[in-house]
């Protein structure tokens, strides 16, 4: 069952700055690739299976590292005998950070992930203070968003699967809400599409959790070619022009 942390982190009203990111949807709309509920669903399914799976797997792996730190919280989900102190935790976060960077070839996508991580870090620190967050911020002051969500869930005592579900949901809920604002789509129809992604989302969560048990170099790395090239085009072609979303 999800705990309070993953519910709060997935809430659109969570003050982490996620509302300024559309996950590539704004660029897809400006290219005419997404124009109605059906084309939005196609976009969301592709995004979930690619960028969503990468994010979910790294969130799950990060939650496992976080829960492993002895001082991380009231109820670590793993026995502390297999767990390590600050230096080892930092080394494991650093490896996850490097592997996630290697799986994010688009500079614009890396920047969007770090910008969201930075905004979320302040809110997470206030809600779930823990030395684990210092370990993650020591690797990079602007942690990647999936690693931070995973770390926060781990600190709060939630299992890797909840972190994966939270991040996989965010990978589609942000673009879905952006579509309502950009295209004026029927919010009830868009919400129904989101709910219809349920089985695909559970498949992604299961794959993420299973991969997070293995070594970081083996974590999934599905590419999203058009998403990647649109992410950069959004930054380049809209520089200095009016746009609603940062990504």
């Amino acid at each position: 069952m999800p705990g309070l942390a993953s519910l709060v982190l997935a809430d659109a009203r969570f003050p982490g700055g996620g509302h300024v990111h559309s996950g590539g949807l704004e660029e897809a709309v400006s290219r005419g690739l997404v124009s109605d509920v059906a084309s939005l669903e196609g976009f969301l399914r592709g995004r979930l299976r690619t960028a969503g799976l990468v994010a979910a797997a790294f969130a799950a792996a990060s939650a496992a590292v976080s829960a492993c730190r002895p001082s991380s919280g009231p109820s670590p989900s793993r026995p502390s005998s297999s767990c390590d102190g600050a230096a080892a935790t930092r080394a494991r976060f650093a490896e996850l950070d490097a592997e996630l960077e290697a799986r994010t070839p688009s500079a614009a996508a890396r920047e969007a992930s770090r910008a969201q991580g930075r905004g979320t870090l302040r809110a997470v620190r206030a809600a779930w203070p823990s030395p684990v967050l210092d370990d993650l911020a020591a690797v990079h002051p602007r942690p990647h968003h999936p690693l931070l969500i995973g770390a926060a869930c781990g600190v709060a005592g939630e299992p890797p699967g909840e972190a994966a579900r939270c991040v996989a949901y965010l990978a589609v809920s942000g673009p879905a809400s952006a579509a309502v604002r950009l295209l004026g789509l029927d919010p009830f129809a868009v919400n129904a599409v989101l709910v219809g992604l349920g089985p695909a989302l559970e498949t992604v969560v299961a794959e993420a959790v299973s991969a997070a048990d293995g070594p970081p170099p083996d974590l999934p790395a599905p590419g999203a070619p058009v998403l990647d090239l649109m992410a950069q085009a959004h930054v380049d072609q809209h520089r200095g022009r009016l746009r609603l979303f940062a990504s």
Partner: peptide, 23 residues
């Protein structure tokens, strides 16, 4: 240090039609 790690998949109609993948 991993510099790049990426998997590309073809043959799934959902991915191929998706404007997030091959559009």
């Amino acid at each position: 240090v991993p510099l790049l790690h990426q998997t590309q998949e073809l043959g799934d109609p959902v991915l191929q039609e998706s404007s997030a993948h091959l559009a």
